[in-house]
Design a protein around this nucleic acid. Structure first.
Lengths: 337, 337
DNA sequence: CTGAAAGCGCTAACAT
DNA sequence: ATGTTAGCGCTTTCAG
């Protein structure tokens, strides 16, 4: 029925010029109360809303942010997505979502995002190569990497302090009296995975402890389970394991309990990383390092908007994450994290 | 550095007209191999990509689909989001995501979506009022409701057969010899919640069974836990409970086991709805009705694209979901679903 | 097959 | 404060 209503239609009905209509709908505009009323009345009657795309072409601001995110099966991602979307919605931005499985995919995605004239890009737990970041920089599109770091490159990034987190886990397990400690690491091709492992190993060595095993779980549940099976089936099994993220830790706990019949924390202490909501579910009750997701999101959005607003320098933000002690690991007496 | 590269820049460098460039980048275009080569070379050198927004203004096709989704903490949603995004990406569409907490929010969101000139709207587990749907219809923007139904209204909808699912659960529990059966229902203001409950009660009555309790869990874990606590603390406790979705079922199981010290399925059989991945985790091993999410997504995307393509009539698609028997409920001998 | 020209719906000077 | 005018970058007739 109703075909596209344009500002011209509204103008005619209100008996004003088309630019008057535009001004009424433009935030920082100057229009008399009289015309404003007439225009609003006509607009309402016609069901008019300004065409965002046309506006974007002129202003050069689409108010669209591209979000590149990996698999959503780890609960941490959807949580991040939800909150990023909310935070941005509050600022009048919206997110165009792209799911990226592998990293070469990212290049194609970025091209598409640039074609959409997005005002900025957030990558969530996805790394971006340096020349890709360059390409965005050349197009003046700011990029913020959420939960992933990169040493070189001039984009902003927000992570929690993964090195410190890994170290805290080491201290905690050492204080708990563990000496046969294994590590099923986060994906070693990601900064988070590497940093957590690095911190963990550094922490252990402060106590003169050598881990009995360090293996890459790839942030994959199947991989983590296999490793756990192998590690804990032998005679001389570890009495503690630090798993690179909660998502893998759940799989490891299930394997330990239901396949190997081990008790947690009786036979084995398990510690994870992230503190996703499931970690607090009684079935897991997982001791873990809490990634302060709200702070991380705030920082991400703030950093992005600042750069969109013209603030020149990219930021590198590091947010500390506390140890959240629950029941999956033996508790040292009088331990203060 | 590089300021906006337009087709005119490419045209000049390639020594052709601006419209020639446009044709090269337009799928159904006619350009000689000679010009095509020149243009592509120039475009590559300059790093040119056509401005999607400008194109959208003319063609009237933004290739953007608006997705309205509720909270993402129930694993079913992010899964749906991920797959919808992938399926649409394959068809050259992208999704603009809006998170909607309450239902009045939806009206405002739809307005924004229309302003963005989206080619279509998918609501995932979110209901849309009839006049809102009308508004979209008037703007010629097709709407598909995923996992939510509505009796009136002329939009498309895709759901699994929730009535049949609920009924299947009833038959299963009855066959298992249960007679004191409780139901912690899905949100009764949603079609899925109501349908599952309706089917369940109908199924029970076929066996002459009256449920010992039916309460609305609101699709909320806290609410479901409270109800479980109350229901199972009394002397004459139920020996089975059908919970309106998996997400609540996990909370109920945790409450039953860790707060009330009950054994599942020894003391109580628990059945859920959705079959999200977590349901298969050994810690829960939940018997549940499987919502065939892939089929549902395919149908949703297909229905939407058909309507965008001009296919007139909205569709109502109902997909059967089988019972997935696991260990959380007593297994009837020789039961065939 | 190709170039010139019109215009999508809107904002942003520029006049008045 | 309001109307007029000129585009934003592109697709699409329309001639040639």
């Amino acid at each position: 029925m109703t075909d596209k209503i344009t500002s011209l239609d509204v103008a005619r009905r209100a008996g004003v010029s088309q630019s008057a209509v535009s001004r009424v709908f433009t935030p920082g505009a100057s229009a008399s109360t009289a015309t404003r009323d007439k225009v609003m009345k006509a607009a309402e009657a016609l069901g008019y809303r300004p065409n965002t795309l046309a506006r974007a072409m002129i202003t050069g601001q689409s108010r669209i942010i591209g979000l590149i995110v990996a698999y959503l099966d780890n609960q941490f991602y959807p949580l991040a997505l939800e909150r990023i979307s909310r935070a941005l919605q509050d600022e009048g931005y919206h997110i165009l979502v792209f799911i990226s499985e592998n990293s070469q995919n990212v290049a194609a995605i970025v091209e598409e995002l640039l074609a959409y004239q997005v005002d900025g890009i957030i990558t969530a737990s996805v790394a971006m190569s340096n020349d890709l970041a360059h390409r965005c920089e050349a197009a003046r599109i700011p990029v913020v990497m959420f939960n992933r770091g990169q040493d070189e490159g001039q984009h902003s990034q927000v992570t929690s302090d993964n090195v410190a987190g890994g170290k805290a886990v080491a201290h905690f397990l050492a204080a708990g009296g563990h000496r046969k400690i294994a590590h099923i690491a986060g994906w070693q091709s990601s900064s988070t995975g590497r940093d957590r492992t690095r911190g963990f190993l550094a922490g252990l060595s402060e106590h003169g402890i050598e881990p009995v095993a360090v293996e890459d779980g790839m942030y994959d549940q199947g991989t983590a389970s296999s490793i756990a099976r192998r590690l804990f089936l032998g005679r001389d099994r570890p009495d503690a394991v630090f798993v690179g993220n909660d998502h893998m830790a759940f799989a490891v706990m299930d394997t330990l309990r239901f396949e190997l019949g081990l008790s947690i924390p009786g036979d084995v202490s398990v510690v994870g990383y992230d503190d996703v909501p499931i970690a607090a579910w009684p079935a897991y009750d997982l001791t873990t390092i809490r990634q302060p997701i709200n702070q991380m999101i705030s920082a991400t959005v703030e950093a992005l908007l600042a750069r969109i607003g013209g603030d020149g320098d990219p930021r590198r933000i590091l947010i500390p994450g506390p140890l959240k002690i629950r029941g999956s690991a033996r508790k040292p007496k009088g331990f203060t994290p």
